[in-house]
Design a protein around this nucleic acid. Structure first.
Lengths: 330, 330
DNA sequence: TTGTAAGCGTTATCAC
DNA sequence: GTGATAACGCTTACAA
């Protein structure tokens, strides 16, 4: 029982028809089937509890009904939330989501890319450490990709993201409008996608506030790395009055470092995150941030990948939302 | 280029042999191959950049080289960490890890179970909401399972976990040994696996401290739900002096609720978590907890599932470690 | 030690 | 509208 599933052949025999017709019924095509025959097939299938063998289907039809998600770190709540939403939308379309967590390691990322190609996923949602090689390999294998971060000009791929430069500028503006003059900036690694966009937005904002100055530090996107990265600032006589973080994950580490150094947030140092995960509402104190439209991103990413007519690489821009909260001082 | 991969047939032709031998070489069996022939096959394979088609292999051999992980919530850092380690070990054994996140919803859990069975995973690591139905379905489909939580007596399945009762007792003992007399206990839902083990351990500890009393609340395993669940306590004139949480995830919400209510941790209220994720080291204040051996659990789970000789259901018990920290008052 | 050929369970072409 | 039948690419008896 359950040991060996019924096959299309069994259903065909019981319905007094052929395996071809069984296939036509279950796929609504490519040939038409009379109402009466269809009924008999569905009845037989129900009686035998027939479920098409996905593996056989994949081998024959060349589609696996699976999507890949490649991310730097599943422990980052932003990516965990993204994965949740993508999984929901993928399931609604009868697809399985494969999650490839690189854990910040390009080698693991590379292994996942190979794995996704090998398993012939129908499409990949990409948040990559090393954007260009990843895109090259998927392109060479004919796997559709949607990237969720900025990608260098000239690289042909669909992207789906907010305007990072504008969001960074708005966020910095918001911080500086409190009158804070000294800014600390925590970004991801120099070469990681998005870092230069954050910088550019921050610099644009700084131009409008000539008395403000900024110092920068780049570190891995982890709360632990960020804590370590800002500790030296907090030991100085004059720590930055406000800290801009390019991810919430890093901001979590900054909040801790401030607490550890005996600095009050926001009275002594203001902090701003980026991503706007719901975890921000229960940090101590609640974290101001820039909300990314995670659910909409997930919905559209799945649509883009599964819409097989859509073969154009396009750059889609979504809206962000500035979320002030206790940590920024308002 | 990359469009259509080389097949075993191509390799066989180029090496002047048959597809059978190609298969023997790539699987190290089941028939022996002479050194010379093996060399020619490998050479031809390298020249053609041949990679066996995993789908075809799965269909033919009945193994998919994939493992499933079924968890209640990927956003919980404990499960995210578990997923990371499992993925690493699975990859070391050339297996892919499929993550099924139920998001606390039995219907989603059920859908994932169906999906894992349908895709014929070679084994499943189970952290389930509804243990028995899950185990039934996998058993009926002939899928090996390792459960990472307590499972009712009489259910035949391998388990791999710490002794929850003993750990809960030790943790409660530790709290009470500070002299705290009033204890608040936050557990997961009444019917979720583990809850009764936590309760039992706590009660054993309470018996040794006759002047101590406890009040209980059950809530979903989420920091948000836990925050809401303990808020009423913190509004009372005499909140519990110490709070035991059956997961770190819930303890995170308790720390926030205490802060929000103006209570100091640990001066006004002590807090203990459970799971011992590294996130505990950067909460405000750092969270005392019971460390689960996540990496070892992951390693052994993969070994158990892939060791095909091992068909016995056994209950494996791992060691936990009590981790005192600021939040408990020592 | 190697080759032939029959599956694995679909899909889809092509003839009826 | 329907039914044979040849793929899909691999594994593995069985024969040589």
């Amino acid at each position: 029982m359950g040991r060996s599933m019924a096959t299309a052949r069994d259903v065909a025999e019981r319905a007094g028809t052929s395996t071809a017709v069984v296939s036509y019924v279950f796929n609504n095509g490519p040939r038409p089937v009379s109402a009466e025959t269809r009924r008999r097939v569905l009845e037989a299938a129900a009686e035998l509890d027939y479920r098409p063998n996905i593996l056989a289907r994949a081998l024959s039809a060349g589609r696996t009904y699976s999507l890949g998600l490649l991310i730097p770190q599943i422990r980052n709540p932003y990516f965990a939330t993204l994965a949740e939403h993508l999984e929901n939308f993928a399931r609604q379309h009868d697809h399985l989501l494969l999650i490839g967590d690189s854990a910040g390691d390009p080698e693991q990322e590379s292994a996942h890319i190979g794995s996704f190609i090998e398993r012939k996923v129908d499409g990949v949602v990409l948040v990559s450490l090393l954007v260009e090689p990843a895109i090259q390999r998927f392109a060479a294998a004919g796997v559709p990709v949607v990237a969720l971060h900025p990608v260098p000009e000239g690289v042909t791929v669909s992207t789906l993201s907010i305007d990072y430069v504008a969001a960074a500028e708005a966020s910095t503006d918001h911080l500086l409008s409190h009158g804070y003059r000294t800014l600390g900036v925590v970004t991801g690694p120099e070469d990681s996608p998005g870092t230069s966009e954050h910088r550019r937005g921050i610099e644009w904002a700084l131009e409008k506030h000539p008395r403000a100055s900024a110092r920068y530090v780049a570190c891995p996107v982890s709360r632990f790395a960020a804590r370590d990265a800002v500790q030296p600032w907090f030991k100085q006589k004059r720590p930055p009055r406000a800290i801009y973080c390019s991810t919430d994950e890093q901001a979590f580490g900054v909040l801790f470092a401030a607490w550890e150094a005996g600095l009050r947030v926001p009275e002594d140092v203001a902090v701003m995150g980026f991503d706007g995960t719901s975890e921000c509402t229960v940090t101590i104190p609640p974290l101001a941030s820039v909300r990314q439209p995670i659910e909409e991103t997930a919905r559209r990413a799945v649509e883009l990948l599964l819409d097989r007519s859509n073969t154009q690489a396009a750059r889609h821009v979504l809206d962000y939302e500035l979320i002030p909260s206790t940590s920024c001082g308002c």
